Simulated assay, not measured.
Amino acid sequence: MSARDEILGRVRAALAEASPAVAVPAAPRVPDRGDLVALFDERVADYRAVVTRCAAADLAAAVAGALAGASVVVPPGLDLEIDGAVVDDGLTAAELDRIDAVVTRARVGIAETGTIVLDHAPDQGRRAISLVPDLHVCIVDVSQVVPDVPDAIALLDPARPTTWISGPSATSDIELDRVEGVHGPRTLHVLLVG
């Protein structure tokens, strides 16, 4: 027996004697789809975001209502007609700054944290369009809502860039006064479809 094997044997023996039985907790209850969507709605609203529930057939009208006549940019793969929308074809930051709003879809919504994740697929566009305009209208289908962060990570491709959004952009860096819109959109309007 080598010295290594002897030392490891002593460690194993000591651990076996010192380790009490560990109780395995019961598996957490997975909420039903209705509970998940209600929790997501509640948590997103807690961040001072606007949440509007609508049916798929009413989505175009809900988007128009959220925009209220604002100028808007959309990603090239949005697949939703929006009157007067500019399709992003690589607009500069200055050009995006002159646009009031952006409409995107989301990759996933996280119920526990009220977080929306974009993975910048064609229906979500590049990161700049979700950060520069002052209003972000984000479409989340109820089927995209998952219970928690690990559930969301399991759906994401680690090779793709992601943007995690928990409410409108806000900071309290200066004298602990809350200031919105410093690092992204001042207003987040989530359209929860289904």
Rank of each mutant, 00 (worst) to 15 (best):
P133E: 04
V102N: 03
P150M: 13
G181M: 14
I129T: 03
G114I: 12
P150Y: 10
V73D: 04
L156V: 10
E6A: 13
D123T: 02
R43F: 11
E112F: 10
D123G: 01
A152T: 07
L118V: 06
A93P: 00
E6K: 14
E42N: 03
R10A: 12
R29K: 11
V30A: 15
L131I: 08
A18N: 07
R186A: 15
A26W: 00
E95G: 04
H183L: 15
R12A: 14
I116L: 11
G69K: 03
V132A: 01
P161F: 01
S130P: 05
P168C: 05
R105P: 00
G125M: 05
Y47G: 14
A154E: 15
V11M: 11
G181P: 10
V74H: 02
G34Q: 14
A70N: 01
A70H: 10
V190R: 04
D97F: 13
A85V: 12
D58V: 10
V30R: 15
R107N: 06
D79M: 07
I82T: 10
L118M: 00
Q124L: 02
D173M: 08
T115K: 03
V145C: 04
V87D: 05
A3R: 13
V146E: 01
A3F: 05
L91E: 10
G9D: 05
V102K: 00
V44H: 03
I153A: 06
D35M: 13
A66N: 07
E180M: 15
V117P: 03
G65A: 13
P76L: 09
D100L: 08
H120D: 09
E112A: 15
L91V: 10
L118D: 02
T92K: 05
A94E: 15
V37Q: 07
L192V: 07
A85T: 14
T115M: 12
L15H: 01
L155F: 08
I116N: 00
I165F: 06
I129K: 00
P25S: 00
A85S: 06
S2G: 12
I129C: 02
D58L: 05
S166E: 08
V37L: 03
V73S: 04
E175N: 10
